[in-house]
Structures are given as structure tokens and as C-alpha cells.
Nucleic acid binder design. Structure first.
Lengths: 191, 191
DNA sequence: AGCATAAATAATAA
DNA sequence: TTATTATTTATGCT
């Protein structure tokens, strides 16, 4: 059979669904200890944050060291237990081992950890950009014409205004966000 | 290893600048224990995250309970030690007391913590909007009537709302997942 | 002293 | 998983 087109989503429930069921003993039908996974997921997040690592960093580091690739989304879903028990069971030991190793490196020094994670040792936060009034005016004009420019258009705008492309892209993101918030404010609570 | 943090300005230096100076004993000229403040700031962040609180929540809660108002920026600057020793010294006991109280409440249950913090107990994360508000309203109405529509029903809904059938199908998939997960989202709840 | 918003991070529709 | 939205954190400014 080729190219099956499922009409409904998989019926396999996620860990968070199963673990909240009151009458299960903590083991699912495959003998997976859901309660243990829940505990670990909670703990994992706190330990990750204690190390000062992001979901993205963990995903990228795992992708570099282990076989399969792990995206930021995958780590996010594990922490929220928004995955099936089978997936969680498979991922748990990988995360456990990696995190333990990371903590050991961290004790040897922050530098060792960053080396282990694979990122640049001291990636600094980008300096906050100050747009000139002229640039803001121009950006707003573009935004009014099209609040959701394509990648090509962003590149052109950035070139025209002589700003970094990424900076322009983020400006549009934040501008959409701000607009959405303010218009919502007007809808729900008019002073 | 070198600390590339030049203190060029003539203004009062921040804690993070002072604490990184190699040959100070940890006490500044006013007898403030900078090392202790640094330790606390680091610890405060981890404990805050363990409680699942944002800087904004802490600031708002402090504003409500204590005398002076604290913005999210203020909490941020404290955690990063981007403040003068004098300010840090003043803020530290306030944060310490508040956080301890929050942790006690948390042990009594997640609900107690949220009550203490002052936020709405079950404030749901706003949903990402790729549909128009009208469409979402309609979709939710359909979903309430039947969260698991047949292929035929999906086709009809899609036609009615003038969206692609596949788009509507996926919306229901994600909607089911999201609903189930968000109601059990609380990782930190006491079993 | 803190607002406005740029940048970074987490969550999620597709 | 990818690409984007939603949320949180950080900082330039006055």
C-alpha cells in the first residue's frame, strides 16, 4: 500500500493523558511506568534551566551526539508529556544520560558545558537595534501595505533601508504582535 | 581566561561588574556582601522557575503585597545583577521573604500558589490564530457538538467555512490533542 | 525608574 | 519536523 491518507489522527493517547487517569496504577498496558516518566519530565526541565540551557540547545546537542535528530519541538513535547508512552520511554534514557553528562561537565566549569553542548562559548545577546525615525516610518509604510511580507520582500526591504535582514524580519513579527494586542485591548476593555 | 567587562562609565557600577573584579574580597566599600548577593540571585532564578513563575508574575505580586512597585524589568535586572549594590541589598530581603512564602503556598497545592501570586487560576494560553475569529468561533461550535467528525462531516464544515478540507481536518486533530493536554498541563501539581 | 519594544525562547498549526 | 505565533526576557532610552 502506498500513500495512505488517514482521516482521523492516531488514537494513541499521550503520557499526560494517561497519567492523569485516576484509576491506573501508573503502568500503562505495555508496562511503562508513566508516573516515573512524569517525574522525570518535571525534573528534567528544572535541571535544564538550572544549567541555563534552552530546549533548542538540548535538541541540537542531542542531534550531534546521538543517532536520531531531535528538534526544539521534540524537547518541548517531552517536557509537556505531549507524546505517546512509547516515544517517551524511548527518549527518557537518552535525555537522562545526556543531562547527567552535561551536569558533570558543568561542575568542571561553565566552559566545559558549553563545549559539550556544542554552542559557541559565549554567544552574546544581540545588541538592541535602534531604528531611526525615518526607518520606522518606512517600515510602518511597508507594514500597512503588507503586514506579512515574504522572505523575498523582507530581503528587499532590509536592503532598501540598510538594516540586517533578521532585524527586519523580527521587526515585522513584533509589529504584528503589538498590533494584535492593542486591537484586542480595544475590543475587550475600552477605557 | 579574561573578563571582558570594562568599566568605562563614571556612574555607580553594578553588582555584576563589581563581583567579577578579581581582587576584591566580596565586600564592597559599604560592607555589602556581593558574593552573597550573587549566590542569592542565581538561586532565586532557579527557585522562581521551579515554581513556574515569570518575572512579570513576581513583579506584579510584589507590587500587590509590598510597598513599592516592582516592574518585570526590576526583577530581570536583579537576576542579572544589573543594579547597584545598594539597590540589590535593599531588594534581596524582600525577594527572599516573598519567595519563601510562595514556596510554602506551593507545597500546599498549586492552587494556593496561584492565589498567592494573584493570577487567574486557569488562565489558558492564547491560541495561535491562523483562522479568522469568525472561523474559529464556528469551528469551536462544531467541535463542541462533535469533536470527532467523520470524513463526510469534515468536508461539509470545510465547504461551509470556505477553508481547505485538509486544513479543517488537521484543525480537529490538533484541537483534540490540545484540549486534552491543556486540561492536564500542570506538571507541578501535587499528586 | 520604568515604559516601550527588540531579542530570545517556548508552544503549536501545518 | 518546520515555520510561525505566543510568551517571556532584556535593554535602549529619557
Amino acid at each position: 500500500a502506498s500513500a495512505p491518507i488517514p482521516i482521523t489522527c492516531s488514537e494513541t493517547p499521550t503520557v499526560s493523558q494517561l497519567v492523569s487517569k485516576p484509576h491506573t496504577s501508573g503502568l500503562d498496558e505495555d508496562g511503562i511506568n508513566l508516573e516515573e516518566i512524569r517525574e522525570f519530565a518535571k525534573n528534567f526541565k528544572i535541571r535544564r534551566l538550572s544549567l541555563g540551557l534552552t530546549q533548542t540547545q538540548v535538541g541540537q546537542a542531542l542531534t550531534a551526539t546521538e543517532g536520531p535528530a531531535y528538534s526544539q519541538s521534540a524537547i518541548c513535547r517531552f517536557e509537556k508529556l505531549d507524546i505517546t508512552p512509547k516515544s517517551a520511554q524511548k527518549l527518557k534514557p537518552v535525555l537522562e544520560k545526556w543531562l547527567h553528562e552535561a551536569e558533570l561537565r558543568n561542575q568542571e566549569g561553565q566552559q566545559n558545558l558549553m563545549e559539550f553542548v556544542g554552542g559557541e562559548p559565549s554567544k552574546k545577546r544581540k545588541r538592541r537595534t535602534s531604528f531611526t525615525p525615518q526607518a520606522i516610518e518606512a517600515l510602518n509604510a511597508y507594514f500597512e501595505k503588507n503586514p506579512l511580507p515574504t522572505g523575498q520582500e523582507i530581503t528587499e526591504i532590509a536592503k532598501e533601508l540598510n538594516y540586517d535582514r533578521e532585524v527586519v524580519r523580527v521587526w515585522f513579527c513584533n509589529r504584528r504582535q503589538t498590533l494584535k494586542n492593542t486591537s484586542k485591548l480595544n475590543v475587550f476593555q475600552i477605557p
